[in-house]
């Protein structure tokens, strides 16, 4: 498609939607992994982020959801 034919509004809306989808997939997948007994380190390695980042982002939600979290070894 020619650049002039592309609607930036459509493209940017698609970016927003995919970002939101990725966030929701991450929430669901991290919760499943932690329920299955994965450690924060395992999840961080699989996501390609630091352990601190994944912990900070998800710990409160998972505790609120009643997920049993593994102690750090």
């Amino acid at each position: 498609m020619e650049d002039a034919e592309r609607d930036p509004g459509e493209e940017l809306a698609a970016v927003v939607a995919m970002r939101r989808l990725a966030d929701r997939m991450e929430d669901a997948a991290v919760e499943r992994a932690m329920r299955a007994g994965w450690s924060w380190s395992d999840v961080a390695q699989a996501l390609g982020v630091t352990r601190q980042a994944v912990h900070k982002k998800h710990v409160r939600r998972l505790i609120d959801a009643g997920v049993q979290l593994r102690r750090r070894k």
Partner: peptide
């Protein structure tokens, strides 16, 4: 949301992840 995903060629089989999740 679903229309914009469709525009990007993304279709989602798992309805669960399409639903908003509240943040703490």
């Amino acid at each position: 949301f679903e229309h914009s995903l469709g525009a990007a060629g993304v279709s989602v089989a798992d309805e669960e992840v399409l639903r908003p999740r509240e943040s703490p």
